[in-house]
């Protein structure tokens, strides 16, 4: 083989290896869930963000993983993602529809609500309260009124399923669980997301609402669940706990 042919072969082989590496990095490592952009939906310094927890992820190839969904602000449809974008210096009113069953916290300290405030009050006077509405209990016709809770006892009662925590902002909110053990064991919604479209919206669930304020400057803040809910993985911390799009994600604050 002539020298030019050998050089050409070497360059092509090198480029092929580089391209393979880039493809692997982008396809397997760099892939991130879609970002639900709420920035254009803020008004009067407020924006409403809705999330959902589900006991399974039937919309992916990991059907036995617990997961979060985020509502698309345009379509109103729940999207399988944990990435969302909100404007800076804005009051974010979060609603979490909790369709999963209870799992006690490994560390009960995460049972305390922190970093929230009650709308209408000064954010300097952080109230550290989340409002919980045990909504549409199975086979029950009444919903309980929203109840302010500051500390959840997940060890004494079956009261927590996940948490929504942004450590960088000091925000921690346990997602309340339905306390009926029968509902926890037998009546969870069977597909996800749990919506009217699949007749699962009426499954027993909780509605947790709280508000916090985004920083005045932009940035990316990770958020996560502090219940090690990756059942089947070492100490529950693998699988959905360590995969973007399931039990952890990012909140991008746009300045």
């Amino acid at each position: 083989m002539s020298l030019p042919a050998r050089v050409t072969t070497l360059v092509i082989a090198f480029l092929a290896v580089v391209a393979g590496g880039i493809f692997f990095a982008l396809h397997y490592i760099g892939t991130q869930p879609p970002v639900e952009d709420y920035t254009s939906f803020a008004s009067n310094g407020q924006v409403n963000v809705t999330l959902m927890t589900a006991a399974q992820t039937t919309v992916t190839d990991k059907p036995d993983w617990v997961t979060y969904f985020i509502k698309n602000p345009s379509t109103g449809q729940f999207v399988h993602t944990t990435y969302f974008k909100v404007p800076a210096n804005t009051q974010v009113n979060v609603t979490i529809l909790g369709y999963d069953g209870c799992t006690p916290l490994r560390n009960p300290v995460w049972g305390q609500v922190t970093g929230t405030f009650i709308p209408g009050t000064s954010e300097k006077n952080v109230e550290n309260v989340a409002f919980v509405n045990i909504s549409a209990p199975h086979n029950k016709t009444t919903s309980l009124p929203a109840k302010p809770i500051s500390t959840f006892d997940s060890w004494g009662t079956c009261s927590v399923q996940h948490t929504f925590a942004i450590p960088g902002l000091g925000l921690n909110v346990p997602v309340a669980s339905i306390t009926d053990y029968n509902d926890n064991s037998n009546n969870l919604c069977g597909t996800s997301p749990c919506t009217a479209a699949n007749a699962d919206a009426t499954a027993p669930h909780t509605v947790v609402t709280f508000s916090f304020r985004t920083p005045k400057t932009g940035g990316i803040f990770r958020w996560q669940c502090f219940v090690p809910c990756g059942l089947g993985y070492v100490d529950g911390n693998g699988g959905p706990m360590g995969t973007p799009g399931y039990m952890m994600g990012q909140m991008e604050v746009q300045a």
Binding site: G101, C102, P104, R106, S185, D235
Partner: peptide, 24 residues
């Protein structure tokens, strides 16, 4: 990290006995 006080009680009420009272 695998044992939580009162977990046995909660698991029993949930009908889960496989963890023997442990977290997992």
């Amino acid at each position: 990290p695998t044992v939580v006080n009162n977990m046995g009680k909660v698991n029993q009420q949930l009908g889960l006995t496989g963890a023997g009272g442990g977290y997992y």
